[in-house]
Amino acid sequence: MANTTQPAADAATEAAGHAAEAAGHAAESAGMPQLDFSTFPNQIFWLVVALIVIYLVLSRIALPRIGGVLADRQRTITGDIAAAEDLKAKAIAAEKAYNQALADARAEAARIVAETRAEIQKDLDAATAKADAEISAKAAESARHIEEIRAGAMEAVKAVANDTAAALVSALGGSADDKTVAAAVADRMKG
């Protein structure tokens, strides 16, 4: 009811000045401005205008744009994840290939080492055998040589002994033929 009397009260305040205006305000504040139906058409009109503007701006510009951005982002993230998976798979394959190559190289190296070792061993064996043969040949020849020298030396000793014995016999005044002397020397040398 305060609301219906309010325009009248307001008119009175215009005329009556300050004190009356304060009183009018007091009366106004007693009721709820929310229930002042005279302002409803105004509020409803501007609310509808505001809502229509917001709706048009959002539905025409803002929401499609934000939805697009979100979809783009989702796509980018999905794409990036797929690319990352791809790269990861590639990295794993590369590592596998690397390990394979490493193992192959290792086996090859081992094979070469074994081969080389066998070859060297063969050469070594051959060289050793050859050297052994040479050594034994040389040793045999040397032994023969020594034998020859020894025989030569015996002959020389026998000749010298014969000569010396003959000279000794003649010096002691005897005379001996060479045959007897040689037999005597040979007999002595045996003993």
Partner: peptide, 24 residues
């Protein structure tokens, strides 16, 4: 409750449908 009063922004006393108020 004074803060809830709908009043015209550019003078005048009556709040018509098209009046620019503080609510507007």
């Amino acid at each position: 409750m004074d803060q809830f009063i709908v009043k015209p922004l550019f003078g005048g006393d009556t709040v018509g449908v098209l009046t620019v108020t503080n609510a507007t």
